[in-house]
Design a protein around this nucleic acid. Structure first.
Length: 434
RNA sequence: GACAUUGUAGCUCAGUUGGUUAGAGCAUCGGAUUGUGGUUCCGAGGGUCGUGGGUUCGAGCCCCAUCAUUGUCCCCA
């Protein structure tokens, strides 16, 4: 016998999960389309060299390499995200009308340690929307607006979209008198500020060889609960790159406000870093402040140099990912998902041999007017059929038995209230839509 | 990859200083005079106690190994 089991970090989704997941992605699709994004897909499998060298050293180790022909030019891997494959597509299709806006919903794979409670898996679904071909910060703002709109529609209230800019972080490193190649290290440490105290971060920075002076300087900027962009711009007055980043964010916030995004749900956060190497401009990430153990729900940013790694010519691009599994995990833990086992609204009971034909005609009629209807396939006790409806959370049971057939009527029971009425066929639709 | 945690029925767990035939709740299935669920009552099935060694007259319990789990870190959606 073979031990039936799922691969570590991968999951099956039964109907009660899939109904929710489909609802979530449907909301996303609708919002993406409303903002002018069109669907796209890329293969799950890519040549290894297409993927490597874009994410940073740590992340490269998490790419799922396939054993197939290792060490050859054909070395392959499962895609680690959807942004890099998308960039490859853009590089291969130079005549795309820009700005090109696409969304893409597919599983991705990462070879790290699963932590389901935090919403971390090896196989998980990313829902990306990206725009290439424009440097306008308007689209960066639109991506944040999309994130806001989707999360609001799903019923989230206490979420924060943190926004920062790689240009500001580069400026910060300069400001601290550190060499540019320290930016990554410094960012990784300060990024932890939402989880650990400044003292612990400072200790980590010291271990990384950052001078005490630099740490002291950093402290004045990072330990203010919320440092404003304007106060930062006076601190960074002599650093042109940082000033540019600050201006971009000021514009972004203006746009967000006029698009009606609630300021309670987004904030500038100097400590937001994001690990992926390819980001160049604004970056953003959504967290639930009351549930910090759940990783970021969404994350994205501008990556103006990524497509250039395939073409040699840089091309502005910005995108964000909505993490279906993170969102789902959060909704599960916050008890935002009402139990659902089926879309069926009406179960027609199978009373006897003599009523099968009229029942099937009734079922067809209900389906033709868009009512999701099931006919119980076997003639078993009513008790069993009602118990099935109950277990499946089907709201209505319809009986067309011999008595009803004689009267030309049906019995309709509302399983939630327990009420049962005898009505004519033409009244069914009105009754279940009551 | 580092540290910690836990492995007993499908699930959640009891199981005394080591002592007969390993228990409960939930879930599943069947029944309570044959046209009605979610409440109740009765009954049934289901476990080589993660695996392999060792100690012992005797191991679910003690020892060693191994596999797996879960959590934190790292990093991320």
């Amino acid at each position: 016998m073979i031990n039936a089991r799922t691969f570590k970090g991968a999951r099956d989704f039964l109907p009660e999960q899939m109904l929710h997941r489909e609802r979530i992605t449907q909301i996303m699709r609708n919002v993406f389309k409303k903002y002018g994004f069109a669907p796209m897909e890329t293969p799950a499998i890519e040549y290894l060299d297409v993927l490597t060298g874009k994410y940073g050293e740590d992340a490269d180790r998490l790419i799922y390499r396939l054993d197939y022909k290792t060490g050859t030019k054909d070395a392959a891997a499962l895609h680690y995200d959807l942004t890099v494959p998308f960039s490859r597509v853009v590089a291969m299709n130079p005549h795309l009308a820009v700005p090109f806006k696409r969304y893409q919903i597919q599983p991705v794979w990462r070879a790290d340690r699963p932590q389901p409670h935090q919403g971390r898996f090896r196989e998980f679904v990313q829902c990306d929307c990206d725009v290439v071909g424009t440097s306008s910060i308007v689209v960066d703002a639109e991506l944040v607006a999309i994130t806001y709109e989707v999360l609001k529609m799903l019923g989230f209230n206490e979420f924060v979209i943190k926004i920062n800019n790689r240009k500001i972080l580069n400026g910060l490193t300069q400001y601290l008198g550190l060499s540019p190649d320290m930016t990554g290290e410094v960012c990784r440490s300060i990024d932890k500020l939402d989880k650990i105290s400044w003292e612990e971060v400072a200790k980590e920075l010291l271990e990384k060889g950052i001078s005490n002076d630099a740490i002291k300087t950093a402290e004045t900027l990072l330990t203010k609960s919320e440092i404003s962009l304007s106060s930062l711009s006076s601190a960074f007055a002599a650093i042109p790159e940082a000033l540019e980043g600050i201006r971009e964010l000021e514009d972004m916030f203006t746009y967000l406000e006029c698009m009606g995004v609630d300021a309670a749900n987004y904030t500038f956060d100097l400590s937001l870093a994001r690990g992926l190497d390819y980001y160049t401009g604004p970056i953003f990430e959504t967290k639930l402040p009351n549930h910090p153990h759940i990783g970021s729900l969404t994350g994205g940013g501008r990556y103006d140099n990524l497509i250039g790694t395939f073409t040699g010519k840089s091309m502005p691009a910005v995108g964000t990912t909505l993490g279906l599994d993170r969102i789902y995990t959060a909704m599960e833990q916050l008890e935002m998902l009402v139990p659902m086992k089926t879309s069926t609204q009406v179960l027609v009971a199978n009373f006897s041999e003599a009523t099968v034909i009229p029942c099937l005609q009734l079922v067809a009629q209900l389906r033709s007017i868009g009512v999701c209807t099931e006919f119980y396939p076997e003639q078993v006790k009513m008790k069993k059929q009602f118990a099935y409806a109950d277990k499946q959370n089907i709201q209505y049971v319809l009986i067309l038995g011999e008595d009803e057939l004689r009267q030309g009527k049906v019995s309709l029971k509302d399983m939630r209230t327990g009420e049962q009425v005898i009505i004519g066929l033409e009244e069914i639709e009105r009754e279940i839509n009551k």
